[in-house]
């Protein structure tokens, strides 16, 4: 039974990735803009253009190009970046850790902040506090992540310059990284100055990404909590002498978190999508920043590689959400 589930899952994953590959490959080639023209200086001869086009295989038919690219991908070769002249897989994997660390930090902030506001709102339900929290999360939600980025830059980079507005780590810090997971490696090797500097650089972009999601979690979780707090099992806990806060945290929260979890999974993928612009805004050296450069330079292999990696990431996240949903809900565990 489990084997069958796993097999079905793998098959759907493969089909999804193949579909993404077809769409991306076609789109970047159909869209206007010629990578060869970007590479040559003005006044290049017809012969030069033809040579370079043949070198990169752009003279072949679209399906033919796709087959060549796909057969490479299956073997782990995503081609070579046109602008950076290095293997796409190497480039992409070197940037992935920065984006992962940023996204996970943003997720933590969103869950912690949203969860706290939701519990507070449920605890003070039907009061002015709840109305105030509702209004503020509505306001927070209506401002998109990149605008939050600008607001933070203005507040903590210009008016009260306490946080650095660009980069991933203070360049003066000397540390020989073996991986690109700065926070993780800093923690494991006990270099807390590295961790501190990296987290400091991540704080503003992470907050920009987290705030809209936090507001969404706050709204949905609070609503779910309020529903749970009307159910008989919470009433019974109240009669037994537990405080309202204890009733919320010990009894209602777990039940209310289940429907919220599905939303967090979907929204987390949107959050990762948001890194593209936010990383650019803060000159943060992650995948998103690289993606924008790749698009501007019409670096077709690199765009394809980045999109495929994002697609794989989204699939993994969805899988993780499904699994944790089953783990948290005993009613699904044995079925």
């Amino acid at each position: 039974m489990l084997l069958r589930t796993v097999l079905i899952r793998l098959l759907t994953t493969a089909i999804t990735l193949f579909g993404v590959a077809v769409v991306v490959f076609t789109l970047v080639r159909v869209a206007p803009g010629n990578p060869i023209a970007m590479m040559l200086p003005p006044g290049a001869t017809e012969q030069d253009i033809a040579n370079l086009t043949a070198l990169y295989g752009f003279d072949k038919s679209l399906p033919h190009q796709f087959v060549i690219w796909l057969s490479g991908v299956v073997q782990g070769d995503f081609g070579t970046s046109i602008t950076l002249r290095r293997p796409v897989s190497e480039l992409v994997l070197s940037r992935l850790p920065a984006t992962l660390e940023l996204s996970v930090m943003a997720l933590f902030i969103a869950v912690a902040l949203g969860g706290f506001v939701a519990v507070l709102g449920a605890r003070r339900r039907n009061s002015a506090t709840e109305v105030g929290l509702d209004l503020s999360s509505g306001a927070v939600l209506s401002i998109p992540d990149f605008l939050w980025g600008l607001i933070f830059v203005l507040l903590f980079g210009v008016l009260w310059p306490v946080l650095s507005i660009s980069g991933r780590i203070d360049p003066r810090i000397e540390f020989d990284f073996t991986t690109n997971y700065y926070v993780l490696e800093g923690l494991l090797r006990g270099r807390f100055d590295v961790v501190g500097s990296t987290l400091g650089h991540m704080l503003m972009p992470a907050m920009s990404l987290a705030l809209p999601l936090a507001a969404m979690i706050a709204q949905l979780l609070k609503q779910n909590l309020k529903e749970e707090l009307l159910k008989d099992y919470t009433t019974l806990t109240r009669v037994r002498g537990f405080t309202e806060t204890a009733v919320i945290l010990r009894e209602a929260l777990r039940n209310a978190a289940l429907p919220t979890l599905a939303l967090v999974g979907v929204q987390f993928t949107f959050l990762i999508g948001g890194t593209v612009i936010v990383e650019r805004l803060f000159a943060y050296e992650g995948l998103g920043n690289m993606a924008i450069d790749a698009v501007i330079n019409r670096d077709l292999p690199l765009i394809q590689g980045i999109v495929m990696l994002f697609a794989a990431l989204f699939i993994v996240i969805n899988l993780a959400v499904d699994l944790s949903y089953t783990l948290l809900n005993p009613r699904l565990r044995h079925g």
Partner: peptide, 30 residues
């Protein structure tokens, strides 16, 4: 005071137990 002196037997046993917690803790915890 109310918790000290009283207890409730609820109307609907299907909704009066927390679906995500085991029976044991639900009796023992209070």
């Amino acid at each position: 005071t109310v918790a000290e002196i009283t207890a409730l037997i609820p109307q609907d046993p299907l909704t009066a137990l927390n679906p995500l917690r085991k029976i044991g803790p639900q009796i023992v915890d209070p």
